[in-house]
C-alpha cells in the first residue's frame, strides 16, 4: 500500500513538472498553431542563467531566499527576452509560410541554443545549489520533500493564474481573439504581433520557472536537460489536448502517473515478461490509444479552428 502511495506521489511530482512545461507548448500552439520545439531549450537557458546568478550571489554572501528570488527574476527576464527574440527571428518572418517551415526553424533554434549553452556554460554536469527547503515528510509510509511539494503547488498556482489571465483580462481576450482568427482580430483593432510576442514571453517565463524547479529537484543542470523534458511535456500537451490550458495540466499529471505506475508495476503484472524498460512504451501506448479514440486529446482542441 505504501508502495502504491509512493508511486502516486512520484507520479504527481513528475507530472507537475511535465504540466508546467506543457503549458508553455500549449499556449503558443493555442495562439499560433505552431509547436515551439525550442521551448525545452528556453527552460534549460532559464536554469543555467539562474545557476550563474545564484552562484554569484551566494559568493557575495546573500541570504538564501533572496538568492533564490533574484535567480528566478533574472532567469525569467532573460527567458522572456529570449522568447521574444526567438519569435522575432525564427517565427515571425515565416508567419505565412507553409506550416513545416516554422517547425524546422524551431528545431534549428533548439540546436543553436543547445550548442551556445554548451560553449557558454560548458559540457559538464553542474551542481545546482540546494536552496529550496528540503525537509522530508512521511505520509502513510511514503516520503515527499518540501521541494516536491513546492513543485506541485507552483504548477497549480501557475495554471490558475494563466486561466484567470486568458479568461478574465483584456490581454486574455485579445489572445483568444487572435487564436480564433488573427486577421479578424487585427481588423477589430487587436495588435496581433504584440499579442503573439506577449504570449511567447509568458511561455518563456513559465519555462524559466519550470527550469528552476526541475534543477532544484534533481540538483543538477546540463545543457542537454531541456531536450527530453521538452519531448515529454509536448507529449503531455498532446495527451491533454494541445492548445487547451486545462488539458496541458491534466495531460502532464496523467503522463507522470502513467510513467510512474507503469514503471513500478508493469514487471509484476506481466510476471516479468515486460520490465520497467517498457515504461516509455507504456506511456506512448496510452497516448496512441487516447489519440485513436479522441484525436484532439482528452480535453479537446483549441476553442476554435483557425480560419
Amino acid at each position: 500500500m505504501e508502495i502504491l502511495l509512493q508511486q502516486i506521489l512520484n507520479g504527481l511530482v513528475q507530472g507537475s513538472v511535465y504540466a508546467l512545461v506543457a503549458l508553455g507548448y500549449t499556449m503558443v500552439y493555442g495562439i499560433l498553431g505552431l509547436i515551439n520545439f525550442a521551448h525545452g531549450e528556453v527552460l534549460m537557458v532559464g536554469a543555467m542563467v539562474a545557476l550563474s546568478v545564484m552562484l554569484k550571489l551566494i559568493a557575495a554572501g546573500l541570504a538564501a531566499p533572496l538568492v533564490l528570488l533574484f535567480g528566478l527574476l533574472v532567469a525569467i527576464l532573460v527567458c522572456m527576452a529570449l522568447g521574444y527574440s526567438i519569435e522575432r527571428v525564427a517565427y515571425r518572418p515565416l508567419r505565412n509560410a507553409p506550416r513545416l517551415a516554422p517547425l524546422i526553424t524551431a528545431i534549428g533554434i533548439s540546436i543553436v541554443l543547445q550548442n551556445l549553452a554548451m560553449i557558454f556554460w560548458g559540457r559538464e554536469y553542474r551542481a545546482f545549489p540546494a536552496l529550496l527547503p528540503n525537509g522530508t515528510h512521511t505520509l502513510g509510509g511514503a516520503v515527499i520533500n518540501d521541494t516536491q511539494l513546492i513543485i506541485i503547488f507552483v504548477s497549480l498556482l501557475v495554471m490558475a493564474g494563466l486561466l484567470l489571465l486568458v479568461h478574465r483580462t483584456r490581454l486574455g481576450r485579445a489572445m483568444r481573439a487572435v487564436a480564433e482568427n488573427p486577421a479578424a482580430a487585427q481588423l477589430m483593432g487587436v495588435d496581433t504581433n504584440r499579442v503573439i510576442s506577449v504570449t511567447f514571453m509568458l511561455g518563456s517565463a513559465l519555462a524559466a520557472v519550470a527550469g528552476l524547479m526541475v534543477s532544484a529537484n534533481y540538483g543538477i543542470v546540463h545543457y542537454y536537460m531541456g531536450f527530453i523534458l521538452g519531448l515529454k511535456a509536448f507529449t503531455a500537451a498532446v495527451l491533454g489536448g494541445i492548445g487547451n490550458l486545462r488539458g496541458a495540466m491534466l495531460g502532464g499529471v496523467l503522463l507522470g502517473l502513467i510513467e510512474s505506475l507503469g514503471a513500478g508495476y508493469i514487471g509484476g503484472l506481466t510476471g516479468g515478461f515486460l520490465g520497467s524498460n517498457y515504461q516509455d512504451v507504456f506511456a506512448f501506448f496510452v497516448l496512441i490509444a487516447v489519440l485513436v479514440l479522441r484525436p484532439s486529446g482528452l480535453l479537446g482542441e483549441r476553442v476554435a479552428e483557425r480560419a
Partner: peptide, 21 residues
Amino acid sequence: AQEYTSDKAVDFTAVLTSIKG
C-alpha cells in the same frame, strides 16, 4: 529485482520505489 532505465533519464523514483518494496 531487475529494473531498467535509459542513458538519458534523470528520474528514477518509480523504479526505486518498486525496488524499495
